[in-house]
């Protein structure tokens, strides 16, 4: 794997916290960066705050959620921008791909006109130019027979084709950051493989920063360069994908890897290693280490003080007192 160039980060999330109402923390002290040409996989189970983080980066959080900290994209802090500048940034500098392609598209507009509309909103071009560019985009995302598909309505397309249209809309205005929130979860496995490959190719060709949000470690391994593992609103481990997945240090990362079904039990595969208990609700998170109630390595100091996210090496960090494979 080629290491991404050490340039200035494209997106820098600094000490981001998101809380609900009178201070129920949903996301806490979140730090990560995405560089140009780099894919960062944000991984965690439902309720870990990964989708909220994506919405916060897009400036799309509902108004009843409060944020603290900063989200720096290309030099401007998204948390401080007004609605108009945010709208301008969305599409031109950052774009998002959602899980459910059917609801992300307008059902009463043809797919071609939806892309044209986005192009016209952000560029000073004529309709004919926009239509021509739309066809190019459709070919770029490998929609077969693009000209014939131009006037189709979303419901006429398969799930995979719809997701391609959504991707075409997302990259229409050449954003530098692409956020994909579970882009393949609603798709069949053979289609998922196609879409992942497409995303990766687009990202390489356009030197995009890609923030991939998923629950599937396999997807992260196929697409991402770096991985950020979240648990209950906090980052617990981060680093290069291959290093983290081959040699997980946080008990949660290790537990997730071991919980995936491996082999066949008829052929002697062992009982799955489950993580006991469930993710704590946001208002019932423990004061010490968040994972402590479910952790096989938990000791008294884990209960007392929440461990900080401390660097393991130049590009790896860990939030644990008693990591897998012994302390450093």
């Amino acid at each position: 794997m080629t290491t991404p160039p050490r340039t200035e980060p494209l997106l820098a999330v600094n000490e981001l916290s998101i809380s609900y109402g009178a201070g129920i923390p949903l996301v806490q002290e979140l730090n990560f960066t995405v560089r140009r040409g780099e894919t960062v996989g944000l991984v965690g189970e439902s309720g870990c705050g990964k989708s909220l983080t994506a919405l916060a980066v897009m400036g799309l959080l509902p108004p009843n959620l409060k944020t603290a900290g900063g989200i720096d994209l290309g030099g401007s802090d998204i948390t401080k921008l007004d609605a108009r500048s945010l709208r301008k940034m969305r599409g031109s500098q950052m774009a998002m791909i959602f899980q459910e392609p059917l609801t992300a598209l307008n059902p009463v507009m043809t797919i071609g006109s939806q892309v044209v509309e986005v192009l016209l909103a952000h560029n000073k071009i004529t309709k004919a130019e926009a239509a021509k560019r739309t066809l190019e985009l459709f070919e770029l995302v490998r929609i077969p027979d693009a000209a014939a598909r131009f006037n189709d309505y979303p419901h006429r397309l398969s799930g995979g084709m719809r997701q391609r249209v959504v991707i075409a809309i997302a990259i229409a205005c050449n954003p530098s950051l692409l956020i994909a929130d579970e882009p393949t979860t609603a798709l069949d496995v053979t289609v998922q493989a196609q879409i992942l490959r497409l995303l990766k190719r687009l990202q390489r060709d356009a030197d995009l920063g890609l923030l991939l949000i998923t629950h599937d470690l396999g997807v992260v391994r196929q697409v991402a360069d770096r991985i950020v593992v979240m648990y209950a609103g906090c980052v617990v481990e981060e680093g290069p994908v291959d290093e983290v997945l081959d040699n997980p240090r946080h008990p949660y990362t290790a537990g997730l890897l071991a919980a995936r079904p491996h082999g066949s039990r008829t052929a002697g595969a062992e009982r799955l290693a489950d993580i006991r208990g469930t993710v704590p609700a946001p208002h019932a998170r423990p004061g010490g280490c968040l994972f402590e109630p479910r952790c096989p390595n938990a000791q008294a100091d884990c209960r007392a003080v929440r461990p900080p996210l401390s660097p393991l090496s130049a590009d790896r960090a860990l939030r644990c007192y008693h990591p897998v494979g012994g302390a450093n």
């Binding site: 189970e45 439902s46 629950h215 470690l217 537990g255 997730l256 919980a259 995936r260 079904p261 039990r265 009982r271 799955l272 290693a273 489950d274 993580i275 006991r276 469930t278 993710v279």
Partner: peptide
């Protein structure tokens, strides 16, 4: 979720 999925699969077994 994966961790819960493992619990339920074990239960089935």
């Amino acid at each position: 979720d994966v961790s819960v999925q493992a619990q339920v699969l074990n239960l089935f077994v």
